[in-house]
């Protein structure tokens, strides 16, 4: 999957959980949960949706690596080939 497609998938997934989000307004290096009001249930649903769309397994021990949008993109890119 190329990067623009992956980015679109991530944004689409995020907007399903937080419809008010405008992707262009997101700062890629600022913690995502600080920018978008996501509680732990929202965050889990976000990761579950990414797992289901992309087939990427995200162990709980990796949650701490996924803080910013850049982190999420990098993590998924490395695992989506």
């Amino acid at each position: 999957m190329d990067e623009p497609t992956l980015r679109k998938t991530v944004f689409d997934t995020l907007r399903r959980i937080a419809p008010e989000v405008t992707p262009a307004d997101l700062e890629p290096a600022v913690p995502l949960r600080d920018q978008v009001d996501l509680d732990s249930m929202d965050w889990l649903n976000f990761l579950i949706a990414l797992h289901e769309k992309l087939g990427v397994d995200i162990p709980e021990s990796d949650y701490q690596k996924l803080v910013t949008l850049d982190d999420v993109m990098g993590y998924l890119k490395a695992r989506c080939g």
Partner: peptide, 17 residues
């Protein structure tokens, strides 16, 4: 809880709540 979740797929993990 971390140990309990470790062996489970993401869809079956339990949040602290």
């Amino acid at each position: 809880l971390a140990a309990r979740n470790a062996g489970k797929p993401i869809t079956e993990r339990v949040l602290m709540a």
